[in-house]
């Protein structure tokens, strides 16, 4: 079944609910990681990297805008309201992405983990039955190419460098690993998403592909791949204080006057 546009999906409440839930996952993931990335502005380890990394954070926020706009077309609020006004427990980003920034190694590992996941998710969305999403996924994946390249380079080189850098990278991997399954929580409508062809992939398939890729690179770099793997089922619902604080910061000006034009 191909759903060309809003009209094609709006008449089917079950599909609509599932689609919206997925769009919130996509939008919130990119907004939160983009926000965290932007906190590095002025503070990256090199001036040149500061500039390069900022474009990545802008891309992520830009992608969030794209998804929020799809939600607005489906009858949800306008993008700014969706980004600023929803309460923390209504957010659908993976918990891994909301954690406060650590050191540069933590940032690189988190982005590399997320990029690897996002690439697989986008790959599936490139054949989505919901055409506006499919078209967006193709564009977004093209922009993500540079992100993948960039974080992959950093990931490999910091580990290969050995010494303190490798030590910090291994510590970041260990710290972030238990959060990774949160990425694979596709929400309560995962079955409907797959059946309708909106997200034609299962969480299990994504997890396997991710682990194959990530473990492959880690073994190549002689880094131990952690064996434990937690349950993914509530990874987008059990948010932490870090998200509440992030949203509070983000809305500090907005909430002075929600009705005002800024």
């Amino acid at each position: 079944m191909v759903m060309e546009n809003v009209q094609a999906v709006i008449s089917n409440p079950e599909v609509l609910t599932a689609l919206k839930d997925l769009l919130y996952q996509l939008a919130d993931d990119d907004l939160v990681i983009g926000h965290r990335a932007s906190e590095w502005l002025g503070l990256a380890p090199e001036i040149e990297e500061d500039v390069a990394f900022s474009s990545i954070s802008q891309d992520e926020v830009g992608h969030a805008v794209f998804y929020y706009n799809l939600l607005a077309e489906l009858g949800e609020d306008v993008a700014d309201k969706l980004a600023f006004e929803r309460s923390p427990h209504a957010r659908r980003n993976a918990v891994m992405l909301e954690r406060e920034n650590g050191d540069w190694a933590h940032t690189i590992v988190r982005h590399w983990f997320y990029d690897s996941f996002e690439d697989l998710r986008l790959q599936a969305l490139e054949t989505s039955a919901y055409v506006p999403l499919r078209q967006g996924a193709v564009k977004i994946r093209r922009e993500e190419f540079y992100h993948n390249l960039h974080h992959d380079l950093w990931f490999r080189r910091l580990i290969r460098a050995g010494g303190e850098a490798r030590h910090r990278m291994e510590a970041a991997i260990a710290q972030l690993w238990s959060d990774v399954p949160s990425l694979f929580d596709l929400g309560p409508h995962a079955d409907m998403l797959r059946e309708s062809g909106i997200l034609p992939v299962t969480s299990v398939e994504l997890q396997k592909a991710w682990r194959d890729k990530v473990a492959g690179v880690m073994r190549e770099l002689d880094v131990q791949v952690p064996t434990q793997w937690c349950d993914a089922s509530d990874g987008r619902r059990r948010h932490t204080d870090a998200l509440s604080e992030l949203l509070q910061t983000m809305g500090e000006v907005y909430f002075i006057d929600k009705a005002a034009v800024w």
Binding site: G42, G62, M250
Partner: peptide, 21 residues
Amino acid sequence: VPKAPTLRRKLGIMSKVQDEM
């Protein structure tokens, strides 16, 4: 940058500060 009051302002000020760097 983290407090910019709309998504568009967020993008605008990010890219502006990026230019300064």
